[in-house]
Amino acid sequence: MDPTPALFDPQALHQHRARVRGQDALFLHEFAAFEVSERLKDVNRTFTDPVFIGWQGDYWAQQTGVQARLIPDTDVLDLEPESCDLIVHCLSLHWASDPVGQLIQMRRALRPDGLMIAVMFAGETLNELRHALTKAESELRGGISPRVAPMAELRALGALLQRAGYGLPVADIEPLRVAYETPWHLMRELRAMGETNVMNAREKSLSRRDIFTRMAQIYAQDYQQDGRMMATFELAFLTGWSPSETQQKPLRPGSAQTRLADALGVTELPALPKKT
């Protein structure tokens, strides 16, 4: 049986990242790194063997003040079993063709009760651009080609953590709305972030100019606010712990010693009879 084809082209991703110059467009990395830094403060633990994964790992180390070992986000991660107590996947998991495999590799590399935090684009990220491109291409070509990568939903991400075997899994979304002068400014910034299309199914030839002209018109019609073009970014933060006997465990159903009604100070009403 042939293996499932990879969703993304790693060579194209490497090329897109290699053409990034400077850090002027890394404001989303800055925001995500700050959020991770704040979450690590809440953990109130000293980590001795942290690892940062991703092509901007050094930038994240600067932003968080964590002296971590830096490794690239390759399909097979450069991690030894139980070799670290903190792993941060730095805003690149959305480009993994096998995100579950990445999560499993990180969990195996953690010592018992080690912490993993992964940040990725998800949810409604770039939904405005996706809609405008899809509508423009449908009008002018009668069909569409994949131009914006699919984004995982929050519930699915929580399920990924459970499948990967993490204890105390938590997945949450931080939404950001960013204003641009035109859709062209948005696309230039995506290029400067290294976040342009690398799907294997993408159209390899040059795109028709009229499609992008029509896209800009639709974008301005549907997503303009106070003369600016709005773009949505949703950053998913996935947090999980390597299982340990010292971790808190959920109680078994029916094992509570106190009635909820008593705790809330209210009167419990009798159950309604079942309809037949």
Score class of each variant (00 low, 15 high):
E174A: 15
D226V: 11
G165C: 12
P169Y: 03
M215E: 06
Q221A: 12
Q225N: 15
Y180G: 07
D222A: 02
L129P: 09
P183V: 14
E181A: 15
M199N: 04
Q247V: 02
M193P: 09
E181F: 14
V178E: 04
R155W: 04
A152F: 13
E245I: 11
N127A: 06
L190Q: 02
Y223F: 05
L126K: 06
Q224N: 03
L190E: 08
L160Y: 05
G167S: 14
T246I: 06
S207G: 09
E137Y: 00
L129W: 00
I218G: 07
Q225E: 15
R209E: 08
G143D: 05
A149W: 06
G123P: 05
D210E: 10
Q162M: 12
L238H: 02
R208N: 05
M229Y: 00
L129S: 11
G194W: 00
W241K: 15
E137M: 01
A192E: 14
Y219K: 12
V148I: 11
G240D: 08
W184S: 11
R208T: 04
P243D: 12
A171P: 00
V198A: 04
Q162C: 05
Q162L: 09
A132K: 09
R214E: 09
V198Y: 01
A149N: 11
A156W: 09
E234N: 04
P150S: 03
P175T: 00
E245F: 08
M215N: 06
A136F: 13
M229A: 02
A216M: 00
E203P: 11
Q217F: 01
Y180Q: 13
L154E: 05
R191L: 11
H131M: 12
A220H: 08
Q248L: 14
G227C: 01
Q225T: 15
N200R: 12
L168T: 14
E189N: 10
R208A: 11
W241L: 14
P183G: 13
E124H: 08
A201I: 01
V178D: 09
R130L: 07
R130A: 09
I218R: 04
A179F: 03
M229H: 13
A132D: 00
R209N: 03
V178S: 00
L238M: 13
T246S: 05
R155D: 09
G227Y: 05
V148K: 12
Q225K: 15
I173D: 01
T239L: 12
P150Q: 07
L140G: 01
E181C: 14
G143S: 13
M199Q: 13
G254V: 10
A159Q: 14
R214A: 03
I173P: 06
R209P: 02
E195G: 07
P183K: 03
D226Y: 00
A164R: 13
G165L: 09
M215D: 01
P243R: 15
V148H: 10
I218F: 03
E189G: 03
E128N: 03
I144N: 14
A192D: 14
A220Q: 11
